[in-house]
């Protein structure tokens, strides 16, 4: 049986002065994922290892972490695909470490909540469903795939120097509602994403897009959001483009 070495950045702020790397030798088998490896360590080598997981199928967003150079979901990253005898794992950046790979997601959720992440329709609901054409619905394709894993937030270098920056996921969520023919809170939500910590802080670095496990065009969506805000507020001639 072949094996790989996991090098995990460990840190418990309650007991450790500073983070340190620990190594674990883990036997591998076909189809094994990084998450399987972390469970092997927790069950057989060190029960104190802390990390989140739930669906193990890349859809719940629990297990985003930095694996061999980039942010990925541990559950859908097969060890063989990394093509390396060493698996280096560390927690997401820009979020306080609570223990090992387990970070405090509250700052992420605060920003998510800030943009009023729910449908705000302009009318009373119809007796049946609101109608939406297939073309209108197509505007929501991909953008609704976001699982709020936080990989984009962790990868965004703007978050390095602006803790208050809303970040890619919250801005994408805002654009999700701007794109929905049923939503009417355009002005209200534009106010929420405006300002120096809002949409203008995005420097179009594309990190978010590169790491997104759902391959969503996040940077592009933010660019559309900026453009629509310019059109809506300062340059009506740009509207409808």
């Amino acid at each position: 049986m072949s094996e790989v070495t996991f090098k995990i950045l460990r840190y418990d702020p309650k007991t450790d002065k500073k983070p340190h790397v620990e190594q674990f030798k883990v036997p591998t088998k076909s189809g094994m994922t990084v998450l399987d490896g972390l469970y092997y360590i927790q069950e057989h080598l060190d029960g104190s290892l802390a990390f989140r997981s739930s669906c193990r199928a890349g859809v719940c967003g629990s297990c985003a972490m930095h694996i061999n150079g980039t942010y990925r979901l541990a559950c859908e990253t097969q060890i063989s695909a990394l093509n390396s005898a060493t698996i280096k794992v560390r927690p997401m950046a820009h979020l306080p470490v609570m223990k090992d790979l387990f970070v405090d997601m509250d700052p992420f959720w605060e920003k998510f909540k800030h943009i009023k992440p729910y449908l705000i329709p302009g009318d009373e609901p119809a007796e049946k469903e609101r109608l939406q054409t297939t073309d209108e619905r197509a505007h929501l394709d991909r953008i609704i795939d976001c699982i709020l894993c936080g990989a984009c937030f962790a990868s965004c270098t703007v978050n390095n120097y602006d803790e208050e920056y809303l970040g890619p996921a919250a801005l994408l969520k805002a654009q999700r509602f701007f794109s929905d023919s049923r939503d009417a809170a355009i002005e209200e939500r534009m106010d929420l994403v405006d300002g120096e910590h809002g949409v203008w802080r995005c420097h179009t670095i594309f990190n978010c897009q590169e790491v997104c496990p759902k391959e969503i065009d996040i940077t592009g969506s933010i660019a559309v959001l900026k453009r629509n805000m310019v059109a809506n507020r300062w340059s009506p001639s740009l509207k409808k483009q």
Partner: peptide, 19 residues
Amino acid sequence: VREMEHWGVPFSRTPDGKI
């Protein structure tokens, strides 16, 4: 199900715009 639509669920649509 319609209540979920009213709350914002992006259901796939028929050619005439229904769920």
